[in-house]
């Protein structure tokens, strides 16, 4: 065990790369999810078709297969990427497709009455989306986004297969050099768990903020007595 722990600089470097790939890929996936998810809520059939093609295509391909494409196939066609960029593109495109479904579903799940009220105060279609529907849809997106975020982080382990020195890659190196298989994998199991917990904290913070915006978990209605006296309209 101590041999494994002695290689902590390598493990930390690997963990840092895992975190970087996770954050970059998540940011990229988020942008894709918003763009393609909102296209899925558009009235135009063409725009909705664009959403369907993106989602079905990239959801149907394993992130690892995409990664092989960015690493091995596309360079043959003259398209080269740095290893980090290839990893971010592959994972981002894959998880962006899941995210787009979350965005589309959440926007559609905001009660239609909210759209109608936004229409009644004469918001333009874009303002309805930006000022009324999206802020409410965010609250619905956050829990599934939290899941996807952690799923995405775990999926980054696949990049070790193309030689990117992430946490899993480092662990395999250490395991090979020390022969301490169990100890090594216990250590990285804990490290992945800690990273996941840290991401979970970020998601919780975002959820708490959206609860506040939507007035959930506030002390609700005033006490019954206050409510009835409050009803008298002062002229």
């Amino acid at each position: 065990m101590s041999e494994v722990l002695n290689s902590y600089p390598q493990l930390l470097r690997g963990a840092w790369l895992t975190i970087q790939i996770t954050l970059y890929a998540a940011a990229f996936a988020l942008v894709l999810a918003m763009v393609f998810g909102l296209l899925g809520t558009a009235r135009s059939r063409l725009l909705r078709a664009v959403n369907r093609v993106y989602v079905e295509f990239f959801r149907g391909i394993a992130a690892l297969v995409l990664l092989y494409w960015f690493f091995y196939a596309l360079p043959l066609l003259g398209l080269r990427f740095t290893p980090l960029a290839a990893a971010v593109l592959a994972i981002g495109l894959n998880y962006g497709a899941y995210g787009a479904e979350v965005v589309r579903g959440s926007v559609n799940a905001v009660p239609r009455a909210q759209w109608e009220a936004a229409c009644a105060i004469n918001f333009t279609p874009l303002q309805r989306l930006r000022r009324v529907l999206l802020p409410q849809a965010f609250a619905l997106m956050l829990p599934p986004f939290g899941n996807l975020f952690i799923e995405l982080m775990k999926a980054t382990a696949g990049v070790s297969l193309v030689g990117i020195a992430d946490l899993t890659f480092r662990a395999k190196q250490i395991q090979a050099s020390t022969g301490q298989t169990a100890a090594t994998f216990v250590v990285i199991l804990v490290m992945y768990f800690v990273i996941a917990q840290a991401l979970q904290v970020l998601v919780r913070l975002a959820e708490r903020r959206s609860d506040r915006v939507l007035g959930r978990r506030l002390p609700t209605r005033p006490a019954p007595i206050a409510a009835t006296t409050g009803e008298v309209v002062s002229p």
């Binding site: 009455a113 909210q114 109608e116 009220a117 802020p135 007035g215």
Partner: peptide, 21 residues
């Protein structure tokens, strides 16, 4: 949009925006 400027509506279920005070 021009025509809606003339018209306002109040709904049975209020439909206030819950994302705003």
């Amino acid at each position: 949009h021009e025509m809606r400027k003339r018209i306002g509506m109040v709904f049975q279920q209020f439909n206030l925006f819950p994302n705003m005070n």
